[in-house]
Design a binder for these strands. Structure first.
Length: 546
RNA sequence: GCUCUCGUAGCUCAGCCUGGAUAGAGUGUCUCCCUCCUAAGGAGAAAGUCGCAGGUUCAAAUCCUGCCGAGAGCGCCA
């Protein structure tokens, strides 16, 4: 359809086809038409007012598929033939997208010394969604959970456990107890040195410390797996910083051999000052590794193992500098593929004072609590529904709660910070996940009740129907744009718009028993199909019945 | 101090990359609509100097500069 309009304009105007395509826009309101061509730019070369140019252009002969052309101010508005358009959209056969390459996505990647907090939620579900969006765009995706299971935080826990630890508490609530120890050791600077020493022993291979570390790691992991299970999110690979313990020496040696490593106050650094990225600490003066060291080893190793075309790191925006430094060092090392690494940063959840949640200040929101609260609310709502008497509710409540949480997060611009408020997830009306599920369930409900097989005749198409058809048609566009920006919120926003249009349609246009039943059923089916696909891209499970 | 990000309706946020027609949602407030395929719904009203000031442009919430306000980061944490 767009091409028809572009060709039409190309015949009348001295412009490149590409330029016309770029200029062509969609009018803000349906009654203004389906495509619009602004004539401001032509005014200079033609030495005429854009309004006059527009009215001149509007007099062209109509090709097939275009039903009307109107000048409105400096715009030429085109109306497509709704019947032909609808036939094209509703009859579209979906072809598999061609394979384009491999993408590794680093997602979730919690520091397992602490319970799963609200901060981890973003990376987990945004990463999950980005993965699905990449797949929809033809990429093979490897989802990697790169655990923060190495580093000084374990020195702190080991130190804390020796000083204040309790086997009983560990047995009762392992992760809670470990977190308590971590906070306690972290609360003042007085234990810093001893904690660092414990980590050094760990990295040097001390048997006792390794044993403790392994034990704590396994206990934490069990807890984390429970949360991932509840969230319904899985990974292709669960890796961790600890796996690179024996590979970091090689990285340090390589940096040395390439003449990039500089001694500075007893530590070893790579100087990226000229790139405006400061100095990157590679090795502490006690010889132990750092976050950056491990990320370098991991990136090099990962490229070897997966030979990805792109690697996406879905990690919080507070680590922007860190990733620019790591990518910068890799570039200096001569790895050309460093340009294929992307930090898809997400904004932070801030507390009500507008500040970052900080462990040091003992402020955290735990995913487990949020999850429970939202599931309870969903269950309460379900119990009010007459039609669900005697049906299984737990699974339903969980799906609704997850839809609320996932959508409540994903609809926001990934890169922006936002204030954490449980109400964001506890609200089930309006622009929320449950609203999307509800719309989908309504469509399913209609389709379940069909017994007749009315013929599909596309007659007159009203505005409500046409608006819905146009929205359905733009799905592929949205999927493409979401990939370009690694932006799940575009899909989320699309879902809401699509659901809104469907609900309008649902009220205004009776389907079953109506004279347009055949056509409307096809439309409902197309909606349900696209809505289902969109929800899937967000990682939200569908519900056939609310 | 330096770097990056943000500032849009009472509240929570889209829109900004790629400039266009009357700046959009949800929520909250106020009206309506269940003899009708699920009311977690629909229709409508009120609510905005798009932080401030310049600049570029036929056209700026959108691009550029400065200022104000908030947040994050800035070598032995991750």
């Amino acid at each position: 359809m767009k091409n028809i309009v572009v060709k039409m304009i190309a015949k009348e105007v001295d412009l490149d086809v590409c330029d016309i395509e770029n200029l062509l826009e969609v009018p803000p309101r349906l009654e203004m038409g389906d495509f619009a061509f602004p004539c401001f730019g032509l005014a200079k070369s033609l030495k005429k007012s854009p309004v006059i140019i527009a009215s001149g252009l509007a007099k062209v002969k109509l090709p097939k598929g275009i039903s009307e052309v109107k000048a409105e101010g400096a715009y030429v508005n085109f109306f497509v033939d709704r019947g032909i358009f609808a036939k094209g959209v509703l009859g579209k056969k979906r072809v598999d997208v061609e394979k384009k390459g491999k993408i590794c996505i680093d997602m979730s990647s919690p520091n397992i010394a602490k319970p799963f907090g609200i901060g981890h939620l973003r990376s987990t579900i945004i990463g999950n969604s980005i993965g699905k969006i990449c797949e929809a765009n033809g990429f093979e995706v490897v989802k990697i959970n790169y655990l923060g299971d190495w580093g000084t935080q374990f020195g702190k826990i080991i130190f804390g456990f020796r000083k204040w630890g309790s086997e009983a508490k560990l047995k009762k609530d392992a992760i809670g107890h470990l977190y308590e120890l971590y906070v306690r050791a972290n609360a003042t600077d007085e234990f810093d040195e001893e904690c660092r020493a414990e980590f050094k022993k760990l990295e040097d291979g001390d048997k006792e410390n390794l044993k403790l570390w392994k034990r704590f790691k396994d206990l934490s992991l069990k807890e984390f797996d429970k949360i991932y299970d509840l969230l319904g999110i899985s990974f292709d690979v669960v890796s961790g910083e600890s796996l690179y313990n024996d590979k970091m020496g090689a990285v340090v040696a390589e940096l040395e051999a390439k003449g990039l490593l500089i001694e500075d106050e007893g530590a070893k650094i790579v100087d990226l000052d000229s790139e405006g990225l400061g100095k990157v600490l590679i090795q502490k003066s006690d010889g132990t590794s750092l976050y950056a060291t491990r990320d370098l080893a991991m990136a090099i190793d990962r490229k070897k193992e997966y030979n990805f075309d792109r690697a996406v790191y879905e990690v919080g925006s507070e680590q922007k500098l860190h990733f620019r430094q790591v990518f910068g060092v890799l570039d200096k090392m001569g790895y050309e593929w460093s340009k294929d690494l992307v930090h898809a940063a997400h904004g932070l959840y801030l507390d009500k004072d507008g500040k970052k949640f900080s462990t040091r200040r003992g402020k955290s929101v735990f995913m487990k609590d949020v999850l429970n609260e939202v599931v309870e609310k969903a269950k309460t709502n379900l119990l009010k529904r007459e039609m669900l008497k005697g049906k299984e509710l737990d699974g339903r409540a969980r799906k609704i709660a997850l839809a609320a949480i996932f959508y409540g997060d994903l609809k926001n611009n990934r890169e922006h910070n936002m204030v954490f408020d449980v109400d964001r997830f506890l609200s089930f009306e309006g622009d929320t996940g449950p609203y999307l599920l509800y719309s989908y369930a309504r469509a399913s409900s209609i389709l379940r009740k069909v017994d007749s097989k009315a013929s599909v005749k596309i007659g007159e198409i009203n505005d409500t129907e046409f608006g819905l058809i146009k929205k359905i048609d733009s799905f592929e566009d949205v999927v493409g744009k979401a990939y370009l920006g690694l932006a799940p919120n575009l899909v989320a926003n699309y879902c809401f718009e699509l659901a809104s249009l469907f609900n309008e349609f649902y009220h205004a246009c009776p389907v079953l028993g109506n004279e347009k039943e055949g056509f409307r059923l096809v439309l409902v089916g197309a909606f349900r199909d696209v809505m289902g696909k969109s929800l899937n891209l967000l990682g939200i499970e569908k519900l056939e019945e609310m």
